[in-house]
Design a protein around this nucleic acid. Structure first.
Ligand SMILES: [Mn+2]
Ligand SMILES: [Mn+2]
Ligand SMILES: [Zn+2]
Ligand SMILES: [Zn+2]
Lengths: 148, 148
DNA sequence: TGATAAATGCAACTCACTTGCAACTTGGAA
DNA sequence: TTCCAAGTTGCAAGTGAGTTGCATTTATCA
């Protein structure tokens, strides 16, 4: 499996620009991590990234994945997704609208919810609390069709 | 400070009933933990509960606080509040409406938001995803007036 | 090609939370 | 009131996500 060879072609230029602007290098491990994140349609954990890299014979140390995910978060290239599972998940921002998720309490399946009902409410809360709101986390939990 | 003496008077009967119904005993440590949770107007961590008990000279082992909080969650007497701080918070349900929170990114201050905009959206999502929704988590993050 | 700044891997660490177990309460039955 | 089983506690040890220090390696650019 070729993780690195056609990466320059697939990886969006805006992502590479952000990395260059931040003085980041495009190392082999970093390219492999970026490739996994870009392929993943749902938020993924650090351990899952490392597992996939191992299976693809491009093994990268867990610490390196942690450090890269933290860096990508600082550059706002990935969003953290906290589903209270005991570990964080991350998803690429590039080309995706702000959205939320629903997770099955039975099997853990995650589904994207491509919507956000909170724009007006955010303004109301800013007015009433005098906070300046920077973001929010909204997750739904329930039972998927198979687990009901 | 008297944590235990007038506890029976203050503690809502519905809570004691739930405990009895679950075959739970009213031990001294448990009463002290319940008292702290009932006094706290904002969601509190396990470590904070233990600290307050120590200061009140009613020290209880951390493990005991963890076990009691887990038990109270099973009986649905407390709600978990996850603000992605690295630890969970818990708040008593008794006498409080379903609501949400906003936390300052600077000082960590938490403010109750006594509202929920998600009833209609929940139905819409159930219709579209065929999930049965059991709950949701909604938190806002931003900067409080002092930290702006 | 060589300098240098950034990135990696490994080992050791931190910290929230859990588990096993012997000793101790509690609350009800005798 | 006494006794006992079930439930609870504290301590010690363990788990697992995430972090940190440091020597070595790698990408980038002059
Ligand atoms: Mn998503
Ligand atoms: Mn609250
Ligand atoms: Zn949103
Ligand atoms: Zn709500």
């Amino acid at each position: 499996m070729q993780l690195t060879c056609n990466l320059e072609i697939q990886m969006a230029e805006s992502i590479l620009d952000s990395l260059r602007a931040g003085g980041k290098k495009l190392t082999k491990p970093r390219k492999a991590i970026l490739a996994i994140l870009e392929q993943s349609s749902l938020p993924i954990t650090v351990a899952e990234i490392a597992d996939q890299l191992k299976k693809a014979r491009a093994a990268v140390d867990l610490v390196t994945v942690y450090r890269n995910v933290a860096m990508l978060q600082e550059l706002k290239l990935v969003n953290p997704v906290g589903l209270h599972e005991g570990q964080m998940r991350y998803e690429f921002r590039h080309g995706r609208e702000h959205h939320h998720h629903i997770q099955c309490r039975g099997c853990g399946q995650i589904v994207d919810l491509m919507l956000c009902p909170l724009k007006k409410l955010t303004e109301l809360i800013e007015e009433q609390t005098k906070f300046v709101i920077e973001g929010h986390a909204l997750e739904f939990f329930g039972w998927c069709p198979q687990c009901q």
